[in-house]
Simulated assay, not measured.
Amino acid sequence: MVIGMSPDFPDARFQGDAGQLVFAQCGVSVMELNAELEARNLALPTSGASNGQTIGGAISTGTHGSAHAVGAMQDFIAGLHMVAEGGRHYWIERASQPVVGQPFYELLGAELK
């Protein structure tokens, strides 16, 4: 897991704080992520009750917290690195909310989608 991003990686149009971007593997548990965030005085805006889920499981099943107006965990995913059939790599993010630039997804060996 990496918290924060080199100034070379965010897209010039990125509106957020690159120091608060998190690049985590899907098998990391919400508990592990929360511990790393807490050590940096950060926190997830919402998460499930037990923290026992993995990040991949929580976002794929719609895990949510009790804060009605905040949104669910998947609402805070800015991009995904996917490995597809044949070992092809893709970086997937919203075209309307770019997060990373070409140097980042090329470092991953990924194609932007």
Rank of each mutant, 00 (worst) to 15 (best):
Y90C: 01
G19F: 01
I77G: 02
T54W: 02
V2D: 09
F104T: 05
V28N: 03
I3D: 07
A84I: 04
R88N: 03
S60H: 09
S47G: 02
V30L: 00
Q15E: 14
M31W: 08
F9H: 12
P7G: 09
C26W: 13
K113C: 03
L44Y: 12
G52H: 12
S96R: 14
M73T: 10
P7C: 10
N34M: 04
I59S: 05
M31S: 14
V22P: 02
A12Y: 01
I77R: 04
F14I: 06
P103I: 12
G57E: 12
G56D: 03
T63H: 06
V30E: 00
A69F: 11
E85I: 02
E106L: 10
T63L: 13
H81V: 07
G109N: 10
G4D: 07
N34Y: 00
P103R: 14
R94K: 09
A12W: 01
G87L: 11
P10G: 03
V99F: 07
A84W: 09
G86D: 06
A69G: 03
E85G: 01
A24P: 01
A39G: 11
V70T: 15
Q97I: 01
L33M: 11
G56M: 06
G79Y: 11
V2I: 11
Y90G: 01
L80A: 08
Q102I: 00
A12P: 00
V83L: 14
G4H: 10
Q25T: 06
G48W: 09
